[in-house]
Design a protein around this nucleic acid. Structure first.
Lengths: 153, 153
DNA sequence: ACCAATCGTAGGTGATAACCAACGAATGGA
DNA sequence: TCCATTCGTTGGTTATCACCTACGATTGGT
């Protein structure tokens, strides 16, 4: 007999932290599958987002903006460079620094990633009725400035 | 000069999957800190939830209900047993099986964990205004039956 | 000239998540 | 009686996450 599917107990589903964790995990996994089709991952997207919004940026600032260790950024940057989605030059004002910039391929890749995320979002909304979708938008918009999300305290 | 705090770029915060991931991660971490004060973790709570809702249950069914590998359940169960939060007996009808049941200490610990989760939830709601809180409740209630959360398809 | 600090990197660590194969004990149908 | 299957466990693997130290090159203040 095959193992039954997961069936979370009601008193676990009563816990918003659990529910949040589940929806976030499955959404993240699904998005990862989408991004993998173009050999991208969520850190690639995050770095491209920084470069899109800020323009050319030094590596240490990118790491700081995303809250990751500079040593962890190295492989992400190498991958973006090798994929042609970003380019970097030494800062002539300070040759210790690299300045990263997005390329036109990077812009296109980032636009694609945003569309994939939007498509996934629409799919997540499908089982919801109109008031629930409204609640999704209201809440997710509010969370963009929530201290626990922005990391600023 | 100290490293500046994280400052996610607006076009990353535009992505609901990112925002969901962030709020879920910080909520999970904060809850983990709370639970650790009583030497508990989220899997302990999950197993106690199964036992609370279902009554005495065989181990394989607990693993299936929570979507985890039976081999990963072993340490969780050992910990609950050693902490006195659960007890188990061989199933007289089939001595291959163990039947787990929650103890009175386990019931109390689970009630405490639910209160901690509720307090954290209230804290997360603090920065939100009334319509946003309403949206939180509407959405989280809806997500309890969302296929991506319940894992049933 | 010296040196503390910065920048990016190489390489490391520990923890967690999620999966797997194989084993001994036990079961129940053939 | 035999054997395929189940139950729980041991012990393993891979991947990811998030942190660390130390290094060489470079900078700028003293």
């Amino acid at each position: 007999m095959p193992m039954p599917e997961t069936h979370y107990p009601p008193s676990l589903l009563d816990q918003d932290v659990f529910v949040l964790s589940r929806i976030a995990l499955t959404a993240r996994r699904r998005l990862a599958e989408r991004l993998a089709e173009r050999d991208m991952n969520r850190w690639d997207v995050a770095v491209l987002a920084v470069l899109t919004d800020r323009g050319p940026t030094v590596q240490r600032s990118i790491a700081a903006a995303l809250g990751i260790d500079p040593s962890d950024l190295v492989d992400i940057v190498d991958h973006l460079l090798s994929a042609g989605l970003a380019a970097r030059d030494r800062d002539p004002a300070d040759r210790r620094r690299y300045i990263l910039r997005i390329t036109s391929e990077g812009r296109e890749a980032f636009a694609w990633a945003r569309k994939e995320e939007q498509a996934l979002r629409e799919a997540l909304l499908t089982p919801l009725n109109a008031p629930q979708r409204e609640a999704w938008h209201t809440l997710l918009t509010a969370l963009r400035t929530h201290p626990e999300v922005t990391g600023q305290r």
